[in-house]
Write a protein that binds this DNA or RNA. Structure first.
Lengths: 345, 345
DNA sequence: CGGCGCTACGCAAACCATTGCAGAGGGTGT
DNA sequence: ACACCCTCTGCAATGGTTTGCGTAGCGCCG
């Protein structure tokens, strides 16, 4: 039923090979012939059979993307970027939700591997070894995960943290809390690392809590701990947690930002519209997705650049209404260094 | 480089056909032979080439999903359901974001059509004719869109509206606003229809506004209009708009739910965690995705049930903190339908 | 005018798995 | 002992496209 290359060939009075060439390597056929073929193809509505093509070329024209959790708007952002860039490159995209389970993720990638030319992974939890092994079965690029000789698009979390610290320090804060996300999440380690060095430079004392679930509930839970410590500012691992903090602070009657400043990470849609609007660092999610696909396609099409090129994307602090000057007596807090097991920068 | 069926055959000392049968129609080969083949396949890590298989079987083992807007958490919920059910059925899923453009959506489906066995569409804006034409090129099932002889999973918006109306009426409301989403969106028409009949039955006066963009900003814009009319309750087309309404009411100093009740639709994550938590009707997004795939796979695998079976999913009102008894003098409002001058209370 | 090279096209192999058909071998019934 | 049947396995065709190689035709130069 579907129209094949031979149907086109017959209608254009040429052989199938000529049709094939007319549609791809057009300079190998005479102009008049090519037009005849193109016309026939259009009249018949010919679409090449991708299975047949990929059988012989060994390429599929597809890429895959696996994310840990579709419910997290962060990942839908990168999904959009991935899809846009892929489409632009003529690729279709397979998609899989690993549901935060590294072994499921691995299985998914292996299952996809035969149907795609490469996959981009958002895999904060997978082990290095796992990732390397996967890189062997298909072309792989990572998002927000740095691994030698595997290409990756990275968002500069550390730089974002530096901006947060500078912002807070400029507002007169001396002691703030960091609410850890999952300890095994690469980006949590990255953010914490950035925070520590920036805080040390700015003479900001940081006490750490957690790890917590990087969700609303985790923030609720964490808020009480931070409150008990007497910090004047809270930096949450991500916006979801920050929203939880905000909610809990409101319940407990702590005015934000007067009594407590709160900063998130990601710049989700809801960060802008919650009350009060959340100060947060914007992660370039779509750009990250696009960059990851760029890298992937470069590795597939072009000569492999080898040596795992990493593309770093800048992040930006978005100052909204949850940060303000530290409350006056906060200075005394900063002068009480020893009262908590937390980290000081 | 990749291992083929012949490699397995050679290692197991049988022909390729036997390998093929051992892996699929296992009852056609002797037990001992089958084990030998399976062992060889496992040792070699054999994975059948999907292109070759699909070339001969005519099936791809893939399905596609196209959604209008990935930024809308509603659709990511659907996506999760689709993916889960597809995986369970051994299908992989292609994904495409139509970006709210019906012509792009159509192009996407046509592009996917050769690589999938069917696609499920969330296409609130596409025309009936367009959908029917698409149903010709590949197996199609719809989500939240009723069209004769095209299978669809439908969420009972009208039933949800009935519950909303009953709830509001029981709380003593007599006059409420409905904030329309896009007029060409199927589910808006459906919700409005449900509202009208339920309201008539409950003697609830409904004043309609809009259409608005079904987003936060649309809700902000709509809130002022509803406020000016003097209704005691606002039903928004969806949660995003309801959140905008909440935000605007807060800005204008209108206490919710004391002075104004607000109801949304969808039960997004944020509806539960905003302040105050939003009363809304829960749409079974994941279940809807799963049901759509059920239908699709039934149409593909089994005999086509023809005649477009429609599966209807129930919706549930989730009463949270944005609805309360109407303010006392609201009765008089209901008896003065024509006045304009805005907010009382 | 003959030979060479170039262009444009066709032939056929190859890619890999599935499946109808046939055949081999062993067992059973007569 | 022979015919028949049943089980298991192999052969070969099939699907649609790409591509290396061969070749026909033509122009150009010597």
């Amino acid at each position: 039923m579907p129209v094949t290359i031979h149907d086109v060939a017959q209608r254009a009075q040429v052989s199938a090979s000529t049709v094939s060439r007319a549609l791809s390597a057009s300079h190998l056929v005479r102009g008049t012939t090519r037009e005849r073929v193109l016309a026939a193809a259009k009249e018949l509505g010919y679409q090449p059979n991708p299975a047949a093509r990929s059988l012989i070329t060994g390429r599929t024209g597809n890429i895959g993307i696996v994310v840990p959790d579709l419910n997290n708007p962060f990942y839908t952002g990168v999904l959009r970027g991935v899809q846009a860039r892929a489409r632009q490159g003529g690729y279709a995209v397979f998609f899989a939700d690993g549901e935060e389970d590294p072994v499921a993720e691995e299985a998914l990638v292996r299952a996809m591997s035969r149907q795609v030319d490469g996959v981009v992974m958002c895999a904060p939890f997978a082990s290095d070894a796992q990732l390397r092994s996967l890189a062997g079965v298909t072309s792989l690029t990572l998002l927000n995960r740095r691994l030698r000789d595997i290409p990756a698009a990275l968002m500069d979390s550390a730089g974002g943290m530096r901006q947060v610290v500078d912002h807070l320090a400029a507002l007169g804060h001396h002691r703030c809390a960091y609410l850890n996300g999952p300890n095994n999440a690469w980006s949590n380690r990255e953010r914490r690392r950035g925070l520590r060095v920036a805080a040390a430079r700015a003479h900001l004392t940081v006490v750490e809590f957690g790890p917590f679930e990087p969700k609303f509930e985790g923030g609720v839970q964490a808020a009480d701990l931070a409150l008990a410590d007497g910090v004047t500012a809270i930096i949450a691992y991500n916006d979801l947690m920050a929203l939880g903090v905000l909610s809990r602070l409101a319940d407990r009657g702590v005015p934000v930002p007067q009594e407590m400043s709160v900063v998130g990470f990601d710049n989700l849609l809801y960060a802008a519209v919650c009350a009060p609007p959340l100060t947060t660092v914007a992660m370039p999610m779509e750009a990250g997705g696009r960059a990851a696909v760029d890298l992937l396609l470069a590795g597939i099409d072009g000569a492999d650049d080898g040596a795992g090129p990493h593309r770093e994307l800048t992040t930006n602090l978005i100052v909204r209404a949850t940060t303000a000057a530290a409350r006056p007596h906060s200075v005394s807090d900063a002068s009480r260094p020893g009262d908590r097991p937390g980290v000081r920068g």
